[in-house]
Nucleic acid binder design. Structure first.
Lengths: 214, 214
DNA sequence: GACGCGATAGATCAATCGGTCTATCTATTT
DNA sequence: AAATAGATAGACCGATTGATCTATCGCGTC
């Protein structure tokens, strides 16, 4: 894959107007691939970004490269949001983890929530060799590490295992949000499940489960 | 040429002859929409089913109608599988529910597992007016009812709520399976989570959680 | 001012999209 | 045997797919 690195700092001084074509393309693709899926046409992307056709192939080598780059950027942004949510919740790992679940429940209940972008990409890109799959795997790995750190700080006997459970919970919550059961908001159910996952690792917990206790 | 009996208005009784075009189309579409997503081309479907182009529009009115019908049929089949799994597990609701999770964990770990067909359809069909969405909602509703019945038989204080949790768990498990974390099989994590969901409703449980107790 | 690079517009490409059409063939029904 | 309904093959439709091309334009740097 050949993609050229552009000197943005040159344009950065005059960037008060509007970003370059590469940036515009990324922004438009980030939105359109979420609302319309990764199957959006190149023409739609170019029109939405107001960018010449050639720029796409100059910067990303093709549609697949653009999609992969969109996923990469989204990964960085979303991981930062996870961190921000946890940091805003304080220092207690338990509070930090539950804050993530609550926040996701809020997002998934939003009117314009369209499901998890990474899972949607994995399911839509039926070609397993698509470069996007590697990005989504890295995303999940990062998220898993994020959770594992908190469980470790919590003193959880099996932090990686608990992170697995929390990841399943998150995926299920986002899936339920995407399915939009208009009468049954999944946030409450997910919240209680998350509490159990977290509390199962508390050493001094009064609700210790003998099956999972060390 | 292969001869065929014309009795196919009550199909599914004679298996030795090859099914009619409608049935062939459904079978081919069921497989292709799963492996290649609902975005498969009509030509691929027709070629795989060895069916004339016109038959598609005669029987289903178009691609959307075919997809919706495929989802309907899959729903019926999958719900039957859920029931069969539970019935094979005996009469104890606890055992029956855990058997479902175990079975799904096995399926999700299979080499040709490509994720939940219904969630994939919901995410891929970005047009919210697509007839497929109604089918997937009905599927989830049926599944939820299936779970609720078991939780009710279990004496769970909040059977619908527990069914919500189990549905989230199932979706998360299938999502994790679709993401294929090559080193971290999600079945074990899901299993323990399922045990908690189920046991939280056991009246005589020794591990009763005061936060969730009535 | 000349140069060069990045971006632009847009023609063009073969391929495919979903869908409609005519014509023919086959099998059953009357 | 004639009539009829179902299925087939395949041409055909306009639109769109992702991608490559030429040509021009804008702008900053020599």
């Amino acid at each position: 894959m050949i993609y050229r690195v552009k000197r943005w700092h040159n344009h950065a001084m005059t960037a008060s107007v509007r970003p370059g074509p590469r940036e515009r393309l990324l922004l438009a693709a980030q939105e359109l691939t979420y609302t319309h899926g990764v199957g959006v046409g190149v023409d739609s992307l170019l029109k939405a970004a107001d960018v010449a056709r050639r720029s796409l192939y100059e910067h990303f080598g093709g549609k697949d490269g653009l999609i992969a780059e969109v996923l990469r950027r989204s990964t960085a942004e979303d991981v930062a949001k996870y961190r921000a949510t946890m940091d805003a919740a304080g220092d207690d790992p338990r509070t930090r983890l539950l804050a993530v679940v609550d926040q996701l429940g809020r997002i998934a209940a939003g009117p314009d929530f369209r499901g998890c972008r990474y899972l949607a990409a994995d399911l839509a890109l039926t070609d397993q060799e698509h470069p996007g799959h590697e990005v989504t795997r890295a995303y999940r790995h990062t998220l898993h590490g994020l959770f594992t750190d908190e469980f470790t700080a919590l003193g959880h006997p099996r932090p990686a295992f608990a992170a697995d459970q929390l990841l399943i919970l998150v995926d299920g919550l986002l899936a339920a949000g995407a399915a939009r059961p208009e009468d049954r908001p999944p946030a409450a159910a997910a919240r209680e499940l998350a509490e159990h996952i977290v509390d199962a690792g508390l050493p001094a917990a009064a609700t210790a489960d003998p099956a999972t206790a060390p």
